[in-house]
Amino acid sequence: MKRFFKNLFGSEEVAEESFSTLGVDMHSHILPGLDDGSDSLERSLELVQVMKSLGYHKLIMTPHIMSDFYRNTPEGIREKLALLQNAVKEAGIEMELACAAEYYLDEGFLEKLDTGQELLTFGDNYILFETSFLNEPLNLREAIFKMRSKGYKPVLAHPERYTYFYGKFDNLVELREQGVLFQPNLNSLTGYYSAGAKNIVEKLIDNGMVDFLGSDTHGLKHTDSLQRVLSSKYLSKAFALPLRNSQL
């Protein structure tokens, strides 16, 4: 059931009850002790429980992999996944847990592509990647070409947060035409990150340029904000798009 509320102009708008329409979150930093997300198994358990209360039944957790800061490996990530899976089972929480990664587009990532190293993907060989928020990488198109030539389906994490796209929406259209899928962050719908990010995510939704929606949960501050997202009129508009979350 959806809730209705009056906006400032007196007209009715729809508020979602939960994120059960999505069901699956494919971008978070809930695995313990791997990056700037959860710092303990206890906090990870708490976050899993909160995500369940928000309507999710599956979490695909995506720790950062960055050459300079977070040198995570598939083996290390799977080890923490198994640890959390056991803890969730012991706690009696019904939640399916899986892992992938959020790859930072740097030379280390390109080297992994060139040398055929194992990369953590989700779903239909989707690979989640991010870039600098301020400066467009000179090798962005090269990396996209390499990912696709290796059989990966590139998913750009939070495209609305890259300031180098502000005022250049056509560049996002161009990336999509090159085969890049887009995953905005849900909290951008409330202006959590910035007014600019909110403007871009609304434009992406208006133009049908959203393939996945992710929570990008690092901690309780993000899950608290997700409660406010449920009242966003753009959330209902996004849910009307052919999102791929439920297929994962």
Rank of each mutant, 00 (worst) to 15 (best):
T62G: 10
I200L: 11
E136R: 08
E111N: 12
Y104R: 14
V201K: 03
F5L: 14
E16C: 12
L204P: 03
H222I: 15
I144Y: 02
T62Q: 06
R141N: 12
S149C: 14
L189F: 00
I127D: 00
G196M: 04
L186I: 09
Y104P: 03
F69E: 15
D35Q: 08
R161P: 06
E90N: 14
S18M: 13
E13N: 12
Y126I: 12
L81A: 02
N171D: 11
K2R: 15
G151L: 07
G208R: 13
D39P: 08
D206P: 00
L189H: 04
L235Y: 05
S28Y: 08
K221R: 15
Q85F: 09
D35P: 10
H158P: 01
I205C: 03
N245A: 08
H64R: 07
R148F: 01
H64T: 09
V201P: 05
F145T: 12
S11A: 13
L128V: 11
R3H: 09
L120F: 01
N139D: 09
L181D: 06
G208Q: 13
A197T: 12
L113S: 10
D216V: 04
L45Y: 03
I30T: 11
E75V: 11
L235G: 00
M66K: 12
L119A: 06
G219S: 15
L248V: 09
N72C: 00
D68S: 13
L34S: 00
L119F: 07
V155P: 06
S149H: 14
S236W: 12
F212S: 03
M66C: 10
V210H: 07
F165A: 13
R71C: 05
E46I: 11
Q183C: 02
F133W: 14
G37W: 01
A238L: 08
